[in-house]
Amino acid sequence: NKFNKELQWATWEIFNLPNLNEEQVKAFIDSLRDDPSQSANLLAEAKKLNDAQA
């Protein structure tokens, strides 16, 4: 299933962003679980936040 692979990839990527704190990671993962179809958008937002906090 396409969404499942995207969800797994986005989850792994978010867990490995070095500049997000635990609460931010949890919030993004919760959002992914709530709406897996938004995984690409949520990953992009997480990466933006990660870069901003570098």
Rank of each mutant, 00 (worst) to 15 (best):
L20K: 00
K2D: 15
N1V: 04
A52E: 11
D35W: 06
D30P: 00
F3P: 14
L49E: 02
L17S: 01
E23V: 09
A40P: 07
Q53V: 06
A44H: 09
A54F: 09
S37F: 07
A10K: 03
S37T: 12
L17D: 00
S37K: 07
E6M: 08
Q38K: 11
K26W: 15
N41L: 13
K48P: 00
A54G: 11
E45S: 11
Q38P: 01
E13L: 14
N50Q: 02
I29S: 03
K5W: 08
N16M: 10
A40F: 13
E45R: 11
E6D: 10
A40G: 08
N16S: 09
T11I: 15
E45G: 05
L49T: 06
E13R: 06
D30W: 11
T11D: 03
S39V: 15
N41E: 11
E22W: 13
L7M: 06
L20N: 00
S31H: 11
Q53N: 06
K2T: 13
E13M: 12
D30E: 09
E6Y: 13
S37A: 07
N19Q: 04
K48N: 09
K26D: 05
K26G: 06
L20R: 00
N16G: 09
N41K: 13
A10L: 08
N50P: 00
F3M: 09
S31Y: 12
V25Q: 08
E23H: 13
K26N: 11
D35V: 05
Q24E: 03
F28A: 02
K48D: 06
D51F: 12
L42A: 04
A10H: 05
K47T: 05
L42K: 05
N19F: 10
I29E: 02
A44K: 12
N19I: 01
K2E: 15
T11H: 04
K47F: 09
W9N: 08
E6Q: 06
Q8G: 05
A10Q: 03
Q8I: 11
A52M: 13
Q53L: 13
N21V: 06
D34T: 11
R33S: 10
E45W: 08
L20V: 01
D34K: 10
I14N: 01
D30V: 13
A40L: 14
Q38T: 05
Q8P: 02
F3A: 13
S39F: 09
V25A: 08
S31G: 08
Q38Y: 05
V25M: 06
N41V: 11
E13P: 01
K26T: 09
L20T: 00
Q8D: 09
F15D: 04
L17E: 00
P36R: 02
T11Q: 08
V25T: 07
Q38F: 04
Q38S: 07
E13F: 15
V25E: 01
Q38E: 07
L43M: 06
F3E: 13
A52Q: 10
W9Q: 11
P18R: 08
L17F: 05
K48H: 08
K48G: 05
L20D: 00
Q24T: 03
P36M: 06
L17W: 02
I14K: 02
N50A: 03
A52V: 09
L17K: 00
N21Y: 11
N19W: 12
A46D: 00
A10P: 01
L7T: 05
F15K: 14
E13A: 11
L42D: 00
P36D: 03
E13T: 09
L17Y: 04
F28T: 01
L32I: 08
F3K: 07
A54Q: 11
P36A: 04
S31M: 14
W12Q: 10
L20M: 01
A27N: 11
Q38R: 08
F15G: 11
